[in-house]
Design a protein around this nucleic acid. Structure first.
Lengths: 247, 247
DNA sequence: CGGAGCTTGCTTGTCAGACAAATCTAGTCA
DNA sequence: TGACTAGATTTGTCTGACAAGCAAGCTCCG
């Protein structure tokens, strides 16, 4: 069990954490419910107790579970998990509807990115701006779709990093996780050059250290991205019908 | 060692994680550097290897360290840690300058909250709105400062939760962590009633399901909060001189 | 028949010792 | 001087053991 199933060799406890984390995301273990006991998990997965304990420790750190001494390890309420944790993100991406996921992600990006871009314009260092410019050049000169998407990710990471506010960084991290796989999905040939101008306007506004121009450029870039979502995946992040509430 | 130092009895591995996490935040172990080996940490803190390993597993899950087999456990680059993780937040709050921390936090809140409020106006359930209204009533009728701050936190958590977008939730969580202690700091008597009207406008705009009015009300509320920061702590989140970059 | 108190068992927390695998270092030999 | 080998170090994993606390079931008394 737990031979290298296709991917690279990872630690066993990480694989166990993946397994339990995915089970929780899939709803196989309901919040408030108890996990199987450590010994049971050992038997089920044929691993040692050490491995199981370390896996549960990881999940505890991400807020997914809570183990009170001798009462068992229980799944916590969804509003308590760290939804921005890369692992949690990955597990959710594997178990939920990708479209609604992309819409929620875009909502967050839409909320944060204009402000982040404005902050970047006023607090970035020369090094930050150089990195941003390099990422833009990478997009402009990219010959393959992969290279273009990689440069695009570097570009947006660069913006969040240039805020010099570490609370923005994890948000960039999450776009990175989500966009990497979508690279293959959105790999339509004519997708590439369309947003180049908008990216350039952003980087130049930041270089001019003009927060308001940067914010405006970011808004335009977001509108372009939204249009791409409509065009390529057929979902509209602004037409909120898709995320209409239950009630 | 590790007797209950003042606070409630917690697991030993959590205490060890705290200790190592704080060391990293304080810069006692520089990124790229290796932690002392497991056995060394065992000796230093007088705990078993099991405990040390589980503590390191928690830190690994938060992106703070990375242990490659037999090369040692190294501290990762700051841009890789999960700065929105509650524990990381707590450690940082204990080791860095509180003022610059509050400014960065306010920057994020300023970026996210207007959009979150607008989304809440369009996607909240009746239950969400009732909870928000209840939190507002709690603020209006609070007799003690503690009760007021608790209701205030519940109010803002309610907004982020009402977006029905889980990616906004961790951000609310972080405000909760930060504002709880600041409760004692900002405990000036006349601080209380000033922002009541702004809160009411927000909740009523959401109840009317009017996104644009909600966004506008949120902006006003933020301006009020910024004024409070200036008045009470003497820091100005919008006067960016305080977070001027190094270069 | 019903409830209070005790007992037992299960589960997590922690400790100790052991071996495998991989990596870095240092020494040796060409 | 350079490359290769052997040893030591460190993390990954397994096993067995005991303590402590919570929950359920059982017993006994009213």
């Amino acid at each position: 069990m737990f031979k290298t199933t296709g991917s690279l060799r990872r630690n066993v406890h990480s694989q166990v954490a993946d397994r339990i984390g995915l089970s929780i995301m899939r709803g196989e273990i309901v919040p408030g419910d108890a996990l199987p006991s450590e010994m049971r998990i050992c038997e089920m997965l044929d691993v040692s107790r050490t491995v199981v304990r370390e896996a549960i420790r990881m999940l505890t750190g991400k807020g997914l579970v809570e183990s009170r001494a001798k009462s068992g390890t229980r799944v916590r309420l969804p509003e308590e998990w760290n939804h921005l944790d890369p692992d949690v993100l990955r597990w959710q991406l594997q178990t939920t509807n990708v479209d609604s996921y992309l819409i929620k992600l875009f909502q967050l990006r839409n909320a944060v990115e204009p402000a982040a871009t404005a902050i970047a314009a006023s607090t970035s260092t020369a090094e930050d701006r150089a990195r941003l410019r390099a990422a833009y050049e990478g997009m402009a000169t990219a010959r393959t779709n992969e290279a273009f998407v990689a440069a695009d990710i570097a570009f947006h990471k660069g913006i969040y990093f240039a805020t010099r506010n570490e609370f923005f960084w994890p948000i960039a991290q999450m776009f990175e996780i989500t966009l990497s796989p979508s690279l293959t999905i959105a790999a339509t040939g004519d997708h590439r050059p369309r947003s180049l101008v908008e990216h350039r306007d952003v980087v130049e506004a930041i270089e001019r250290r003009d927060p308001e121009a940067a914010r405006a450029a970011a808004v335009l870039l977001l509108e372009h991205s939204a249009a791409d979502l409509v065009r390529i995946r057929g979902i509209d992040p602004f037409g909120e019908a898709t995320v209409r509430s239950a009630e």
